[in-house]
């Protein structure tokens, strides 16, 4: 964590005071290393580029204000994901009804033929984002979040479990169902 909070004890740098510019601070490194992951998570959770832009801004602003409280118990990526997940959950609570997945849809996933072992063929990668979004939107919120976090190569099952309040084994178990449900919905979205 010293890379981010690189304050010297003798000459402390006021991180919570206005800075002359992000490019000259450690915060700039934090942003450049993790902004894509945070923006992508927000984009796919909120299904709206403008909302994702606002959320990414808000997440990094919160991170900036809390940088002196970050003690390195988790990786910076995990820390930022936690802020982003909480932020997106708060936003989603206001329009939760639209994104609720009915039990009927979950029944469809469970009874659909398993296609998780077959590859995903996409003819037009230009439409890939839209198809992924359509499939994710119809997934239960927990499956959606698990798939997005596990797809990040920097995240271990243990870290994903810590972020979603469950064990790594529970993550593994749910992932199987999440992949299957996603595959069903993705192939339907063609």
């Amino acid at each position: 964590m010293n890379a981010i909070v690189s304050e010297s004890l003798e000459a402390p740098k006021p991180l919570d005071a206005p800075q002359p510019g992000l490019a000259r601070t450690d915060f700039a490194d934090l942003y450049s290393q993790h902004s894509r992951a945070i923006y992508y998570l927000a984009l796919r959770l909120l299904s709206d580029p403008q909302k994702a832009e606002d959320a990414t801004h808000d997440v990094f602003l919160k991170a900036f204000r809390k940088m002196d409280q970050f003690r390195g118990d988790s990786s910076p990526r995990t820390w930022l994901y936690r802020i982003a997940i909480n932020h997106c959950r708060n936003l989603q609570q206001t329009w939760n009804e639209r994104h609720m997945v009915t039990n009927a849809e979950e029944f469809v996933f469970e009874n659909a033929p398993a296609r998780t072992d077959s590859p995903f063929r996409v003819l037009e990668t230009k439409e890939l984002g839209q198809r992924i979004q359509r499939a994710l939107q119809r997934l239960p919120a927990e499956y959606r979040l698990l798939l997005l976090l596990v797809a990040d190569e920097q995240m271990s099952y243990e870290q994903v479990g810590a972020l979603t309040d469950q064990t790594a084994d529970a993550v593994r178990g749910k992932l199987h169902r999440a992949r299957k449900a996603f595959a069903v919905l993705f192939h339907q979205s063609a």
Partner: peptide, 26 residues
Amino acid sequence: SSAHEFASVEEMLRHDARDTHVPPAI
């Protein structure tokens, strides 16, 4: 754009994430 084949959901999401550009306005 050319056709793609992804072995898993995660691989496809990683590709999608790499193709997603962060708006410079942020």
